[in-house]
């Protein structure tokens, strides 16, 4: 009973991400981690809500935020969420190359999002002179949105690593859970962004 056979069956089971004990453990552990992340982002949101009027005579939300870029970013990230669903769909159908293709599109959309965010920050810092040190509002804004951006960056590195590492050998029961939890992470990033564009941007300019 070598690992090769058990991990590379001829037909993948219905839920390849949870077919092995390791997969089950990863699946559960990662969901729990997301439960913890919920509290982490809630603490950041709470801090932001506590300080969103503390502009210290510097620029505030209403003067700073434009909705066009945020709308584009939202669309990019929402779409990337759908494309990663497509990737998981193809994983379950055991068509590896299609999964890689959709993951690739997800990564491109994610990169687009990240580019917009960097442009936005650059614009605030150099155009408006609004930085982490401008006011408590600035600190809270950059920390909350920056934490999310950090998550996006980490997610991109993660997905790309998985794609490159497994490009040649295809899908098996060892890496299926890895792809699956990476996609869970990506969806969670989108969950957080839904609250960011609602609470920070839309409620900020209202």
């Amino acid at each position: 009973m070598s690992s090769d056979q058990t991990l590379n069956p001829e037909t993948l089971p219905e839920q390849p991400e949870r077919a092995t004990l390791e997969g089950k453990n990863k699946f559960l552990g990662f969901w729990f981690f997301l439960g913890g992340e919920t509290v982490l982002f809630a603490s950041l949101f709470g801090t932001y809500l506590a300080l969103n009027n503390a502009t210290n005579d510097g620029p505030g939300a209403e003067e700073l935020f434009g909705l066009e870029l945020v709308f584009i970013m939202t669309m990019l990230l929402l779409t990337s969420s759908l494309t990663s669903v497509y990737a998981m769909y193809h994983m379950k159908n055991n068509s590896f190359s299609k999964m890689q293709l959709w993951l690739g599109i997800t990564v491109l959309l994610g990169l687009g999002f990240l580019g917009c965010e960097l442009y936005e920050f650059y614009h605030y810092i150099h155009g408006e002179g609004f930085t982490l040190r401008s006011s408590a509002f600035g600190s809270a804004f950059y920390t909350l949105v920056g934490f999310h951006g950090g998550h996006v960056t980490f997610g991109l590195l993660w997905i790309v690593t998985l794609m490159v590492r497994n490009a040649k050998r295809g899908l098996n029961l060892y890496n299926a859970p890895k792809f699956y939890i990476a996609s869970l992470y990506w969806h969670f990033i989108d969950v957080v962004w839904v609250f960011i564009f609602t609470v920070v941007y839309l409620m900020g300019v209202i």
Binding site: Q15, R18, L28, W31, F32, L34, G35, G36, E37, T38, V39, F41, A42, S43, F45, G46, T47, L49, A50
Partner: peptide, 25 residues
């Protein structure tokens, strides 16, 4: 199916998250 525990922990997290946001607001 099989998401009972994830749901439990996510809702528990959401509960603490709700208290935290409410408090800080």
């Amino acid at each position: 199916k099989g998401h009972e525990m994830p749901a439990l922990m996510l809702y528990a997290g959401a509960f603490v998250a709700f208290l935290t946001v409410l408090t800080l607001s």
